[in-house]
């Protein structure tokens, strides 16, 4: 009798624990795509400064933050005309705030590595196609191709505001200063009190 009771209890407790479904099993069995969710729940307008990326990610089209409207002296051809007025110290006066620290000591980049000399608002590629300033990920991705792959998929960079609805992500230049892309050392914003253990 006791043994039977014991088995019964085991069976009941086992049942309690098998009721739990493993996360990874749930993940593997899932077939719900973003478009299947009720998108009205997340009705969301695109932010004003978003441009459609030229490629697709695993879920289709996505958008990225634009760059042109954040460049102070855009468009470049207000100064860089066909007949530029040349005067001494112009470069330092206009672009002197730019600190170029990109590519390391071995292969330092110069302005002309990325910018076209005649049309500085366009970027160079290894072949002859030019890249628009809003789509700088194509430029950066020529060297940083692994980061670009991750960025398209979603492991590098971040989304803007929403996890659901239309996918809008930060551009390379939203976070990195293109001229000195490494994050600078700084003080943390706060600190943690010690745990009493």
């Amino acid at each position: 009798m006791l043994i039977l009771f014991g088995f019964g209890m085991l069976w009941v407790t086992a049942d309690v624990y098998t009721e739990q479904r493993n996360v990874l099993d749930q993940v593997k069995q899932s077939t719900i795509h973003r478009k299947d969710l009720n998108q009205n729940d997340f009705a969301q307008n695109l932010p004003r400064q978003a441009v459609k990326a030229e490629m697709k990610y695993q879920g289709g089209d996505f958008w990225t933050e634009s760059r042109k409207d954040k460049v102070e002296r855009y468009p470049c051809y207000t100064c860089h005309t066909n007949n530029p007025e040349k005067f001494k110290g112009a470069k330092e006066m206009v672009h002197g705030d730019i600190l170029l620290d990109h590519g390391g000591a071995d292969k330092p980049l110069s302005c002309a590595t990325c910018h076209l000399k005649d049309n500085p608002h366009l970027f160079k590629t290894a072949d002859t196609t030019n890249i628009d300033m809003d789509h700088s990920y194509d430029l950066c991705g020529q060297c940083h191709f692994r980061q670009k792959q991750d960025w398209i998929g979603g492991a590098h960079g971040k989304r803007v505001l929403n996890w659901a609805g239309k996918r809008v992500v930060k551009n390379c230049t939203s976070c990195h200063n293109p001229h000195s892309p490494l994050f600078q050392k700084r003080w943390p914003k706060t600190y943690s009190p010690p745990i009493d253990k």
């Binding site: 993940v27 695993q58 979603g154 971040k158």
Partner: peptide, 21 residues
């Protein structure tokens, strides 16, 4: 997060960033 180290999303959606990771 200023460095994009944190990724959040729907685990049941095969297209989500978290599933990519």
């Amino acid at each position: 997060c200023p460095t994009g180290a944190r990724i959040f999303g729907n685990l049941l959606d095969p297209d989500s960033e978290i599933r990519f990771v």
